[in-house]
């Protein structure tokens, strides 16, 4: 599903991703952990071409991202991303936030889109809030709308960029529950997070990144309980 080959990314002179390679299979749930500045978020944003890479290849479902002939919009429609700061459209209700892209990008008829949107919002537990504006919703609710919005495009891959980091602790659980259900339903997910409990429960693989490289990877149990690499041990020591 996802193939990252020897990718290098620079922000100006700053070398953010260093010869990074990564493979994710269909239906896999991969969790990426690491200190801030390690390039985790940048990697995610490269996967839907919000950021270009200077060298290397990125393949999403057999399509090469930085090829001239690639229709980036089509690829983006297949890759859903949820951001740390939600980024809901404040001038639209929750329902309209979810309805916008299917209507405008996939050009589905209104009635069908509306029905699907209501279903999606129900799936994340917000059937009572479909006509609410983002400013009327709590952080956890907004993030769940953001997830519904991304899911409404029926993507093949979902990217989560520290989606609970900006939430008050008591609101984190409701978002993680939605993500866990998604994982159980078989969605291919790449999740950048600090939530170790989540990783233990649903991750097929956990990858530790530092300074633009993947340092170590394994199952959650392997990585958290028996880390091999020194830097991994240091990082885990700081947060666990």
């Amino acid at each position: 599903m996802v193939k990252v080959k020897n990718v290098n990314k620079y922000f100006g002179h700053l070398h953010v991703l260093k010869d990074l390679s990564l493979d994710v299979s269909k239906g896999e749930v991969v969790v990426i952990i690491g200190p801030s500045g390690s390039g985790k978020s940048t990697l995610l944003r490269c996967l839907n071409y919000l950021e270009p890479v200077q060298s290397g290849e990125i393949w999403i479902d057999g399509i090469r991202l930085d090829h001239r002939k690639t229709n980036i919009r089509a690829v983006r429609a297949e890759v859903g991303i949820v951001f740390q700061s939600f980024n809901l459209f404040p001038h639209l209700t929750a329902l309209r936030n979810v309805m916008l892209a299917p209507r405008v990008v996939r050009k589905r008829p209104d009635a069908e889109v509306r029905q699907a949107a209501v279903a999606m919002l129900t799936k994340v537990g917000l059937q009572d809030k479909i006509d609410a504006y983002p400013s009327q919703l709590s952080g956890g609710q907004q993030q769940r709308v953001a997830i519904a919005r991304a899911l409404a495009m029926q993507p093949k891959l979902m990217l989560f960029d520290e989606v609970t980091s900006a939430l008050d602790p008591e609101l984190v659980r409701e978002v993680l529950d939605v993500m866990k259900q998604l994982a159980r339903d078989g969605m291919t997910m790449i999740v950048v997070t600090h939530e170790m409990g989540f990783a233990r429960e649903v991750a097929d693989r956990v990858i530790f990144m530092d300074e633009g490289r993947t340092i170590e990877e394994g199952t959650a149990a392997e990585l958290f309980d028996r880390p091999q690499n020194q830097r991994t041990k240091e990082f885990l020591g700081k947060i666990l």
Partner: peptide
């Protein structure tokens, strides 16, 4: 970013 990532032109 949100708009672009949903595939909007």
């Amino acid at each position: 970013e949100a708009g672009l990532s949903l595939g909007l032109s």
